[in-house]
Amino acid sequence: MGVDVIGMGWWGGREGQGGAAPLDPPPGGRPPGPLPLRAKVKGSKGQPLAGVQGAAPPGLSFPPLRPILIAFLLILAVAGRARALESPSEMLANPVLEKRAEAIGMQLRCVVCQNESIEQSNASLAKQFRGIIRRRVLDGWSNKRIIAWMVHRYGTFVLLRPPFDPMTWVLWGAPVIAVAAGGVSIWVFRRRGVPAPVPLSPEEHRALAELE
């Protein structure tokens, strides 16, 4: 789901190659060695186990998996129908017009987080486009005109359903090409025919006779 990368500097990705900074030494000049570990040991109420090394003592518990699992499932449940309207106030009061605006937004790519539609993205630019689309819908613009308005500024790249043009001939033609290639190869193999099996050698004949 969309993170507003604009704010972070969309192109800033190549700066942070420095790696992690060394951790500050703990105050008070603690002697080297592993940090004291607070572990839940059965019966004891979590006293610090100073300097645990290597093998874990019996009863040492691992981080509980269940909350993580539940959180993961919740994320999955929500992610399925992700729409990024931040508040109901973004929506148009008229449900018919709102449906139209949504339909338009779902067809348009968010140019910031490029694999999401304007309707799904949390980027501030996408939010702005949602507002613009809704205003245009209220102003009575047709779907076609609103989409053309976007394409005029951002190119056909914003169409999540690419148009049929020289750039996309191969893309749209792929099913036809695949079927045609399959047909041709079937035709070629059929014509060539299956080679006649090599006749059995006398030993093989004998072996067969024995089996029978």
């Binding site: 604009i6 500097g9 969309w10 630019l125 702005q128 486009f129 500024r153």
Partner: peptide, 14 residues
């Protein structure tokens, strides 16, 4: 409000 930027087709800064 970034409206001029949209007319430029801007998709990030700078």
């Amino acid at each position: 409000d970034g409206r001029t930027a949209i007319n430029f087709g801007l998709y990030g800064v700078p």
